[in-house]
Simulated assay, not measured.
Amino acid sequence: MTADPDKYILKVDGLGVTYGDFVAVKDVGFNVLQGEIFGLLGPNGAGKTSTLSAIEGLLKFKQGTIIVDGQDVQQKPLYAKASMGVQLQSTSFQPELNVVQILQLFSGIYGVPKNKDEIKEMLKDIKLEDHAHKKFGQLSGGQQQRVSLVIATIHNPKLVLLDEPTTGLDPQSRRQLWERIEAIKAKGHAVLLTTHSMEEAEAVCDRIAIIDHGRVIAIDTPQALVDKHRDDPEVIAVSRRGKITLEDVFIGLTGTAVRD
């Protein structure tokens, strides 16, 4: 499904997040469309996690607004949370339960209980039907991420938030997860993901926002950003391959200093 230009699932406007005197996020704004994969990129400490936490409802903010499927997350937090599915970078489930039991548990928690045939079909869809009775900890990293993604979308949320979903995965597992993310988009969901991988951003994201020092400094499609900044002196200076890449643009805009 292509993005619907008339249907914003997520609107972030003028978001500000502070920790005491420290300003983590300042005047951040972007929108995510229905049927769109939107990437939030930035160096460590740039404000990605604070922005994501505010959207998820895990962090209180005093400046700006966040609208999920037409509802303000602060005025109607329960509706907003019900409209979201979240996959964290590191997820841990009840160690004594196997995959089928975990899916049964969370489908019940989300109010969409699944029978055995439905769960079998879900596992078949993610190519884990032969691992149905394994405990979560016995699965590989890629298999765990596939299960986590199914749980994040089991209640058919309008917005799916993915926090560095492919960190630590091998190339085969990463490609499989990209396919799962694209399948989520094809069903009309809006997807917001954070990533440090420029390859991932180019491969799956329709648009990206680059955030640094708490501010959004660029928003566009990956290719449009490359085309716009390919002649910037800062970008040319860091290019190592002759051909300007998204990574060159990212480093040119955010600097070469390593962030803790």
Rank of each mutant, 00 (worst) to 15 (best):
residue 101 Q to V: 07
residue 111 G to E: 15
residue 123 L to C: 08
residue 109 I to F: 14
residue 135 K to N: 11
residue 123 L to N: 04
residue 98 N to P: 04
residue 143 Q to C: 03
residue 99 V to G: 09
residue 101 Q to D: 15
residue 140 S to I: 01
residue 122 M to T: 04
residue 101 Q to M: 09
residue 118 E to M: 00
residue 134 K to C: 13
residue 105 L to W: 08
residue 95 P to V: 11
residue 106 F to T: 07
residue 127 K to I: 11
residue 114 K to I: 04
residue 96 E to V: 08
residue 113 P to W: 13
residue 133 H to N: 13
residue 124 K to Q: 14
residue 101 Q to K: 04
residue 107 S to T: 00
residue 108 G to V: 05
residue 118 E to N: 01
residue 95 P to G: 11
residue 107 S to P: 00
residue 125 D to N: 10
residue 112 V to Q: 15
residue 128 L to F: 07
residue 96 E to N: 10
residue 140 S to W: 00
residue 140 S to Q: 03
residue 135 K to A: 12
residue 100 V to A: 10
residue 141 G to D: 12
residue 116 K to W: 14
residue 131 H to C: 14
residue 142 G to N: 04
residue 134 K to T: 06
residue 121 E to K: 05
residue 96 E to I: 00
residue 142 G to C: 02
residue 98 N to S: 08
residue 143 Q to K: 00
residue 125 D to T: 09
residue 136 F to S: 00
residue 102 I to F: 10
residue 134 K to G: 02
residue 99 V to W: 02
residue 133 H to W: 12
residue 100 V to P: 05
residue 119 I to F: 05
residue 130 D to Y: 01
residue 95 P to T: 06
residue 108 G to L: 06
residue 119 I to A: 11
residue 136 F to C: 06
residue 111 G to D: 14
residue 119 I to M: 10
residue 112 V to C: 13
residue 138 Q to C: 04
residue 102 I to L: 15
residue 108 G to M: 09
residue 130 D to K: 04
residue 114 K to L: 10
residue 101 Q to Y: 04
residue 105 L to N: 03
residue 129 E to Q: 03
residue 103 L to M: 11
residue 140 S to R: 04
residue 111 G to F: 09
residue 136 F to V: 01
residue 116 K to M: 14
residue 132 A to R: 06
residue 135 K to S: 09
residue 134 K to M: 14
residue 115 N to W: 04
